[in-house]
Structures are given as C-alpha cells and as structure tokens.
Design a protein around this nucleic acid. Structure first.
Lengths: 247, 247
DNA sequence: TCGTGTGAACGATTTCACAGCC
DNA sequence: GGCTGTGAAATCGTTCACACGA
C-alpha cells in the first residue's frame, strides 16, 4: 500500500477476497494451538508450513488487514489471533437456526463447531409431527411455522431433503436470516444480499471419484489387485484442497 | 480446439480444471431432474439458469470433454448425463470406509449421498469399545485395527475428533485408500498422490460471520432491532458459492 | 541478518463476443 | 434464427523476488 496510517491497530475497510476469508479460520485455529503450546511469535513461514500453504500467501492475507508483523521477527501470535477473531466476528453473538432434525441435523445440533466462535444454536425446527416436540441437544424441536415470528437467526442451516430446501430457505429469509448454510442438494434462490454457502457431501465424493477414475485410466474396478499404489499426481497430498460446500 | 477427431463420443484425455470438476455433479443432478420431468434436449442457457452460473461457462465445461451439443438445438439431455456420469466414474464401484461413529459419522453412514453414484459404504470403524460391535445403518462397527488387512477402500471418510485425525489418515493410507474426505478440523499430512478434501463446518460458519460482521459495520450485536434488512451486497444471492469443505 | 510487506510476473478461471453449423 | 464451440479479453488468485525495517 501507499499512504496509509499503518499503525497496525486498525481493521482496514479494504475489500477482502473470499479466498483469503476462507483461510482466516484455519490460521486462527493453528494460532490457537500454537498459543496453547506456549508460542509468542510466529513467522509466516511457520504458519504456512502448518496450514500447508505458501508463505507469501500468508503474508499477503494478513497485509490486507494492515501491518501486523515485525520485520525480522514475525507476528505476535496473540495479537494476530485477536485481529483474526475480530475480523471473523467471533466476538459477537450469532444465533443459529437448524431446520431439519434428521440424522445430519441432529449431528450438527450436537456439534462443537456450532457452539464456539460466537455461534449459538438458538432454535431447532422440523415439520414432522413425530419429531416436533422431541428434544435434541437439550433443546425442544419446534415446528417450522413457529420460525416466522420467532427469533431472527443470523444463520439458517438447512438439513432437509432436497425437495423441501427452497421452501425452508424462503421461510428463513422471511424470518430475517442473513446467511444460509445449505446441506440439501439443491441450488437455492434467495434475494440479493443473502449469503448462501453450500455443503454437498455427494459432490465431494463425486469430485474424488472423478480424479480416481482418471488415475487408473481403466479397470481394476475395485478392491482386488494389491501392489504398491503408484504415487500419481493430480493433487499432491500436501496442498489442502478446500472442498467447497458440495453444492 | 484445432485438429481433433471431434466425433462427440470420445472422452478426451485433456486436463480438466478442478473448478470444472466441482460443477459436473451439479450439472448431472440438474440433468437428472430434467430428464425425470421429460426433457429430451437442454440448452446451455437453461442449464446455466438452473445452476446459477454463466452459460458460456457451461459450454466451456462440456467442450473440455468433446463436442456433445448440436448447434441450434442444444444438448441431448440423456447423452450428456451419461457422459458426465462416465467422467465422474459413477459407473464404477467405490467402496467407502467411515472412521468415527459419533453423531456425524452415523449421520453419514445413513446418508443417501453415500450409497448412490457408485458409492457404497463398505466399512464402519471406531476405537471406542462402547461403539465397536454395535450396528449402524445395518452394519457392524469394527475396530480401526481391523482396517489394516481388510478391504482397500477407495475413499476414507474421517469423522473423528481433530486430535485423532492424523492417526486415522495414516491408517487409511496404509490400508491403500486413494482419497480422504476429512471432516475433522485438522490439516492432514499424506503422501503425494493421495487426494484429500476438507469439509469443515466451523470454517463455513466463520466465513459467513465474517461477511455478516462487515455488512453492519458495527453494533446491532444480535436479535433486537427489526426493520427491513437492507439488501446489502457482498454476495448476490444468486451466485451459488460452493462452500469448500470447511477445512 | 531475518522476515515482513508488496510490486510484478504468473497462472487459473471466468466472461465476452462471434464465427460456424444445424 | 438459434445455439454451440472457442479464441481473446478480463478478472481473480497465487507465487516470486526483493526492497525495507527491526
């Protein structure tokens, strides 16, 4: 950057690429582990090694938020972690509504990831009379109709069958939900301004079978034929591929 | 392309960008729905509208595999679907091992996505004596130690706590697994040639809170303050963002 | 000397725009 | 006339390489 009061304490209003945003939680997790282990400073090189990314990428990512580091030394681990936390909004409260109390919905309701970093499961919904009224993760499952007037969840999580996903999305949007995390195998239509992310397990598997099918151009259909697996390329094992929500 | 026997029936050996691969299962799903609804041909325009992508992107994606379409008409839906199926390896058998029979592992074992497109849950594993021997999705859970000599799963799915993920990955690799789908919040080290994809639910949520935190630059911490939600930008609701496995 | 911050090169992906075929 | 297939342009993201500060 050119002229900028680079006091290293300001969050900058600059536009942050989504690719960077997706890496921030990863850096944050690694920093937390290193802090636990007693680290006080950390270099882009070390963070890069642990995250399996390029060190220049780490530096560029952080530089988007200002100058946090000290040349010749590295980054103050605690300060850096705090900055990332703030950028990610981990210091706020983010109520979550989960719609669809099938196996996946119940698993998520009990998940750690949904009750840390400011996230809080605020409501569980379904439409099946056999499920509504039961208790999941210590919370009563309510009928989706009650979502209308109820809280205004920051994030709506959709774990219903594909055929019901759009209807659920509409309900969530009416209820004022700002972001939707969709596990159903459906592309959703939502008004501009609503953020939707997709996690589609089936797509993840199919992406993997695509690459596997290409490796062994044909045959050895399955589990026969031992022998050493040739270390083919196509993706080196060390570059963590962020799987986009299989959507 | 230039000189190429474009008979439209050959899968081409060309290199396919990962971005394209991730879209193929989506196209395939949409085509299947359209075929069910009686469609016989489909234009890139229509497919693009349903997938919420650019029509030129659809055409370019398909052109990587050859010339499937007919100018002035579009694509033969059934033929196109079959080509995609073949590219994705859906005509083969892909045995899957799921390691970690917690809530998420059990949910996945019961999931549709794991028993279609050639995928087949071939083994369920855990190390907890209270879980080993129980039955999940009609299949006995075995101890992870048995994975060693057992089948050679094409895909290993890791649904254990973060601290155990690397050990499980090592076991999967020794057992000859070619690809790993990791739900644990850990970056994995695997030999070159092993494909790893990450699904990290916590990262998905944090990406969403990042964008939400930026929208309302400060304050309204949470659920108070009704009023119409301003249709801010940051992501138009119509561009489906593939959420990379939250990893 | 070491490691950050960053312009500039590079690479990947998307989009445009249109020629060519049905 | 409509729609595919595809060069070329635009955009986005990554990596290099090195000047600068501690």
């Amino acid at each position: 950057m050119t002229a900028r009061p680079t006091n290293g304490r300001e969050t900058h209003p600059r536009r942050i690429p989504e690719a960077t945003v997706v890496r921030l939680p990863l850096y944050q997790r690694i920093l937390a582990e290193m802090l636990c282990a007693g680290a006080t400073t950390v270099s882009s090189e070390e963070l890069a090694a642990r995250a399996r990314v390029n060190a220049a990428k780490v530096r560029k990512d952080f530089s988007l938020f200002g100058s946090f580091g000290t040349r010749g030394t590295g980054y103050d681990a605690a300060f850096l972690a705090a900055q990332i936390d703030r950028a990610l909004g981990s210091d706020r409260d983010w109520p979550i509504a989960i719609v669809g109390m099938g196996n996946l919905g119940r698993a998520l309701a009990n998940s750690d990831g949904f009750s840390s970093h400011g996230f809080r499961v605020a409501g569980l919904y379904d439409v099946d009379p056999a499920i509504v009224g039961t208790s999941v993760a210590g919370m009563a499952v309510r009928h989706l109709d009650e979502l209308d007037a109820g809280e205004r969840p920051a994030i709506g999580v959709i774990t219903v069958p594909g055929g019901a996903a759009q209807t659920v999305a509409d309900v969530l949007v009416s209820a004022g939900t700002a972001s939707i995390l969709n596990f159903a195998p459906r592309v959703l239509s939502v008004p501009a301004g609503i953020l939707v992310r997709y996690v589609d397990l089936s797509i993840e598997l199919q992406v993997m079978s695509f690459f596997m099918a290409r490796r062994e151009p044909d045959l050895p259909p399955v589990g026969v034929e031992p022998g050493l697996r040739p270390a083919t390329r196509l993706r080196r094992g060390d570059e963590p591929t962020r799987a986009t929500p299989t959507g």
